[in-house]
Amino acid sequence: MKSTPFFRSANSHSAQNRRPVALRPSLEIWRGMALPLLAFLLLPLAALLWRADLSQLWVHLADPVALQAIRLSLETTTISAFLIVLLGTPVAYLLARYDFPLRRVVDTLIDLPTVLPPAVAGLGLLMAFGRRGWLGAPLELLGIEIAFTAVAVVLAQLFIASPFYVRAAAGAFASIESELEQAASLDGASQWQVFRFITLPLVRMSLLSGLVMSWSRALGDFGATILFAGNFPGRTQTMPLAIYLGFEMDLDVALALSVILIASAFLVLMLVKWLLAGERE
């Protein structure tokens, strides 16, 4: 079974399956029917950008609460992204290349966090890594405290976001012709050399796009973070938490942070499409 990353399947097919020109007259009808959803998706974003006073954007972003949140978000998501690649790549390779008992169960487990409500993830993390949790209690005896620290933020992001990378990477590994790797290994390349010089360069762009997707997901997490890591400015209050709190304290700061997140999400998605298009050519 070859698993394709779900956010890729749409555009990877559209290029080849484009309808012949003869059927084009119905374009007008389809366009009319597509309009309501497109308008619905666009409307909240447009309203938010309209309401956020863009000329005052920098003033609100210079607010200490906003600055701390941005810095914390960047730091934690960078560490999360690093861990996701380090720990996710072997999982993706394993899933794409080997058959083993309970493979399908593992495959399903990897997808689970993407459909779970993040609050469930947060609660689960508390039960496992909280001070009275399975691992949290022994770790505390060793003097390692996770709850209410930036470490908790990273763990929450890792849980929520890593499946996006693993899914993309597994799809990419599965799409490589195994003859290429066999040829290299017949020529005397070691397993590591095959992976490093043949496999990796072929999937580079897919891995990068999966990473960017999952980084973006980590950046946006709210539910798991607030439940597991709590809310403390500069320590665990990431941008989404600051937006939530800002909704009650200072709407302008919340709007300014929202604009940043929308812009970064948009850039990320454009980047992903560009990377994947580049790899296909």
Partner: peptide
């Protein structure tokens, strides 16, 4: 007061 505030680890909703 200073000691208590230094011990706050989370401001909940």
């Amino acid at each position: 007061r200073a000691g208590v505030l230094a011990n706050v680890v989370s401001y909940e909703q």
